[in-house]
């Protein structure tokens, strides 16, 4: 296995970090430009799906176990819902970000709020995408190759 697909493995190594970096860019630039949690989450997941395609799903499962993904999903959703609850506790309505920084003259609270929510969305989407990939790719193949 080690010696097979040398070019693919090297290319994967080269591409992996830039994909993650791009995901982070899309994630945190989503406040100002096109982007945001959904897109970033998918791009983030793509890096791991690429890893899984080349090294096999089992190797990816060791790098990023399903348990971690479940926790990522929960944490992501908690970022989202937690921001909402936080704004409620601070006296605003659900997701009324302005209460996060009420002194601000230019709605800084909106920025903080949306960054938190988008971060949560990104985490959840990435974890969900990788989970979907694991579950589809990880099932026992019961269709033989010649049946396709």
């Amino acid at each position: 296995m080690r010696d097979e697909h040398l070019i693919l493995r090297i290319m994967m190594k080269v591409l992996f970090a830039p994909i993650i970096l791009f995901a982070l860019y899309v994630q945190f630039h989503g406040d100002y430009g096109p982007g945001g949690g959904f897109q970033a989450g998918v791009i983030f997941a793509v890096a791991f799906i690429l890893h899984g395609l080349i090294h096999g799903v089992d190797a990816t499962r060791i790098a990023l176990p399903q348990k971690v993904l479940s926790i990522m999903m929960v944490v992501g959703l908690m970022f989202y819902a937690g921001t909402g609850v936080l704004t409620m506790l601070l006296g605003g309505n659900l997701l009324g970000y302005d209460v996060i920084d009420p002194e601000s003259t230019h709605h800084a609270g909106q920025h903080y709020g949306i960054l938190l929510v988008e971060f949560g969305v990104g985490l959840t989407v990435a974890a969900t995408m990788i989970t979907i990939f694991y579950h589809f790719a990880g099932r026992e193949p019961e269709i033989r190759d010649e049946d396709w």
Binding site: H106, A108, H111, E118
Partner: peptide, 26 residues
């Protein structure tokens, strides 16, 4: 899409870039 050229223009017009960001994230 809010592009950087317009941001520069904004500064020329002495606007608060954030002032109108109220419409929500999406």
């Amino acid at each position: 899409i809010f592009t950087t050229e317009h941001q520069k223009e904004l500064k020329k017009h002495e606007h608060h870039g954030d002032a109108h960001h109220g419409d929500g994230h999406q």
